[in-house]
């Protein structure tokens, strides 16, 4: 799965207990902030994502783990490529509750 995507990638998932969206970080933890995500850029790093997913699933802390393509906006911040992932990162686009 990871190999089919084109571009820089990060791993995302949701916390098993809480359901919150999180991103895999450089230090092997999970952060709610996309800006803390570990970015896979090279072919080797992208290949390694599958291994990271399998390892992360074993810990039983995060579920539904998959890679998403990210880009940097003009301010240098990481932004997901797809609208679905943008929405997932920022929360509902409407005023709610």
């Amino acid at each position: 799965m990871a190999k089919k995507l084109k571009g820089d990638q990060v791993l995302t998932g949701q916390l098993l207990r809480e359901g919150d969206v999180v991103f895999y970080t450089e230090d092997g933890n999970w952060s709610p902030d996309l800006q803390n995500a570990k970015i896979a850029t090279t072919a080797e790093q992208i290949d390694e994502l599958d291994v990271l997913i399998a390892k992360a699933e074993e810990t039983n802390l995060v579920i539904d783990i998959y890679p998403i393509v990210v880009k940097r906006d003009d301010a240098g911040k990481l932004v997901p490529d797809l609208i679905r992932e943008k929405m997932r990162t920022t929360g509902p686009s409407i005023v709610y509750a």
Partner: peptide, 15 residues
């Protein structure tokens, strides 16, 4: 499937 039969989904931001 067990959680779904109890109405629990995993949605975009949360359960």
């Amino acid at each position: 499937p067990l959680r779904l039969m109890n109405g629990v989904y995993l949605q975009l931001h949360a359960y």
